[in-house]
Amino acid sequence: MDLMLNKKIIAITGPSKGMGDAITRAFAVEGARLALLARDIEAVSVLEKELRDQGIDVVLVACDITKSDQCEQAVARIRETFGDVPDVLVNVAGGSGPVGKSGADTTFEEFEEIVRLNMSGCFNTMRAVMPGMMARRSGKIVNVGGTFGMRGKAGRMAYSASKWGLRGITKSMALEAGPYNININIVAPGMVDGQRFRTKVCPDMAARLGISEEEAAQRHAEDYALQRISTAQDIADACLFMASDRSRQITGADLPVDGGWAAL
């Protein structure tokens, strides 16, 4: 299926780690022009060079998404480079916040930090691209949320709150942007197989329950209807769909990519 993303301008935050890397590469395969927004540009420079060597039209833009002025400057840089504002904004950048802490034990500083990154960061980038998309009367925004923003999670209150808040931003702005032919949606990953899952989540469960790490991975998989853990490519494929015109009649939606946990 042709997703018609060739030569589209795709701005991606958090482009180089885990899901971000998979999402970036997925859009590169589609022939998109890529604007990679990152606070630590050195960490993304290797990926940028690799993509450039493959013939991908890519620009690396320094941007701390928690700073509204930097987001506006980043969009201006993209317009200068590619001649227009992004056709698609994919908000991947985010954090996990305190893990295993109750709400009562979470400090205000910890709560504020993750809300500022996961909520305010996405708001800043959306606010920066919206005027240009509205003037052009077209655009797609894909926010990467999380299933803990669809169901509560003990010990993850701050993270859960930040992703619930992102849903509110997404749905409200989808209503406002709809008359301008702009779609705004959330892709919500569940547990994703990757470095953190294999080096942190599984070892912690294995140590706590006295089982092997492979048994721990299987126990996690058994939580889901499909009995398997999502991969970063699963998340990337969902982002491609939501960024394409194949999803032209979908807006304000939550798409959980979790093997059947949040929605069942």
Rank of each mutant, 00 (worst) to 15 (best):
residue 250 I to R: 02
residue 148 F to I: 14
residue 45 S to F: 08
residue 195 Q to D: 14
residue 189 P to N: 02
residue 217 A to S: 12
residue 176 E to S: 08
residue 67 K to T: 09
residue 185 N to T: 04
residue 228 R to E: 10
residue 181 N to F: 01
residue 38 A to M: 11
residue 184 I to P: 00
residue 97 G to H: 06
residue 133 M to T: 04
residue 255 L to C: 11
residue 207 A to N: 10
residue 229 I to L: 02
residue 196 R to L: 00
residue 170 T to R: 08
residue 91 N to P: 03
residue 44 V to Q: 09
residue 100 G to C: 04
residue 172 S to V: 12
residue 169 I to Y: 10
residue 138 S to D: 07
residue 187 V to W: 14
residue 241 F to Q: 00
residue 223 D to T: 12
residue 167 R to N: 07
residue 16 S to G: 07
residue 181 N to K: 04
residue 168 G to W: 06
residue 112 E to M: 07
residue 64 D to P: 02
residue 156 R to E: 15
residue 216 A to N: 05
residue 141 I to N: 07
residue 66 T to Y: 13
residue 89 L to T: 03
residue 213 E to C: 02
residue 92 V to W: 07
residue 58 V to I: 08
residue 2 D to I: 04
residue 152 G to H: 01
residue 62 A to N: 15
residue 213 E to S: 00
residue 33 R to L: 05
residue 78 I to H: 12
residue 201 V to N: 15
residue 258 D to K: 00
residue 222 E to S: 15
residue 67 K to P: 09
residue 94 G to C: 02
residue 231 T to Y: 08
residue 240 L to I: 02
residue 81 T to I: 05
residue 32 A to Y: 09
residue 214 E to F: 08
residue 55 G to W: 15
residue 25 R to K: 15
residue 126 M to C: 14
residue 50 E to V: 14
residue 131 P to A: 05
residue 20 G to K: 03
residue 99 V to H: 03
residue 145 G to V: 05
residue 52 R to Q: 14
residue 202 C to M: 14
residue 125 T to Y: 00
residue 32 A to P: 10
